[in-house]
Design a protein around this nucleic acid. Sequence first.
RNA 1: CGCGGGGUAGAGCAGUCUGGCAGCUCGUCUGGCUCAUAACCAGAAGGUCGAGGGUUCAAAUCCCUCCCCCGCAACCA
Length: 502
Amino acid sequence: MKKFYVTTSIPYVNAKPHIGHALEFVQADALARYWREVASDTREVFFLTGSDENGSKNYKTAKEEGVTTEAFVARHRAAFQELLLLLNITNSDFISTTDRIRHWPTTQKIWRLLAEKGSIYKANYTGYYCVGCEAYILEKELVEGKCPIHRKAPEHLQEENYFFRLSNYTQDILQRIEQGELRIIPESRKKEIVNVLKEGLQDVSFSRPKDKLPWGVPVPDDPDHVMYVWCDALTNYLSGAGYTADKQRFLKFWPADVHVIGKDIVRFHAAIWPGMLLAAELQLPKTILVHGFVHTKGEKMSKSLGNVVDPKEMAEKYGTDALRYYLLREIPTTGDGDFTIGQFERRYEADLANDLGNLFSRVVAMTERYVDGTVPHAQGDPKLDTRKSWVAYHQHIQEFSFDKALEVVWAHISLCNRYVDEQKPWEKGNAEQRGVILFSLLESLRHHALMLRPFLPTTSAMMLERLGASNITSQDWGKLPQGTNVTKGAALFPRLSHQVHL
RNA sequence: CGCGGGGUAGAGCAGUCUGGCAGCUCGUCUGGCUCAUAACCAGAAGGUCGAGGGUUCAAAUCCCUCCCCCGCAACCA
């Protein structure tokens, strides 16, 4: 059986998860579910997510809060894991960069591989160090030569760092990206990174002295140094797949088919990461899927503006599937998107409650009223045949256009609503056609449910169950079992105005 | 001249490559229907396609100039 390995980036767990994290989780989950259960050639899926927990920021914040760093990161990690559950994310595994059993051996092995190849060397790093910040600040960040936060002139310091010879791999990376061996989606992001590569890559600092970065993975054979983020974090994609802990699994799933990431970390994934893999003589991931940022009313979300949308709150109030739907339908897969409560509620009412929910409701109600609540023995009307929808649907998902795949489903839902009005199954004169009409509509709903599996898993399962088709996964037209009972159940998406606000 | 994306109806977007009556979704208004979650269906109103100039029988689309917004600009995940 073919495999599919998809990852999210690992969020730095120094704060609560925000809606952007939710977007990334849901996109990756849609892909995982699609390849696991809907694609015409389903694959064995490995879906990895995790948490980035090292770095001085966590160490410092924990200290300020008077808790151990372990406790601090554990608490934040738990918030992310809670969100994964809440969003119904089907990750196969979860890797943390503080995992000494599964993660550290991988990072150290990769470090050693790069060192053996002569791709790691020691050199002096010079920069402006602010004692107040306990960190280097870039020259351009200085205001009148002073740290903008502490209003003190930084010290010009020099420290020993290990560096990775990324510059050596520029041409190789460029070639692989230009030829599509490493795909970057969308095209505009590819262009961006190709331009960067054409200007040439510089070597990157790969370590920090232990006193500057006390919370991290030790550099092999040098107790005075700790790995800087690149070798520590990017390698999660290897360690999580079992590079050192489960070699069978690793052999099966590497290379990654899709890394789902945000546009802020394209360079790291499209330049440093492939460079490291080339140096380690490992295969490169096949695709990097880059999503945009979630704005609200066109503005960045920020605490100071007080416009932050909490994914947990949204999922709890409106339901997991409704949130998943909005993120996958309203936010263009690879572009920036807007998240506002008003727009969210409009989408919920118009698409979920009125179009899908009401179609389900009226069709099942008519089945109960006119044909005893059982699926009629009849042929599917070719007018509603979903074959063309399926073709478009598969194509859009495989091109990562989740919004367009959902549009295809909704186009068919509209077609069904129109069909009901045209066929008028309630008129006495149409009694003989009722079998065909209702069978075709019920069968359409089964197809909608199947198509929605990657996106609205709970709703999809509920629809199939009520149609008596939980195990009928055929994408052919007319395969709904006849003579079985259908049940109406509660509204799939109750109208918001009717909701009791507690 | 740093690189890139964008400015089309009240909102969000497609159309620009390959010129040909300006389109989609939501919202608004009117009508129809009564199976349904006051849902559904039909129709209508609403746009100097950022500005100016050019090419053309014809420009949102091609060319030139300008204005505005937003990313990125390498160690800020």
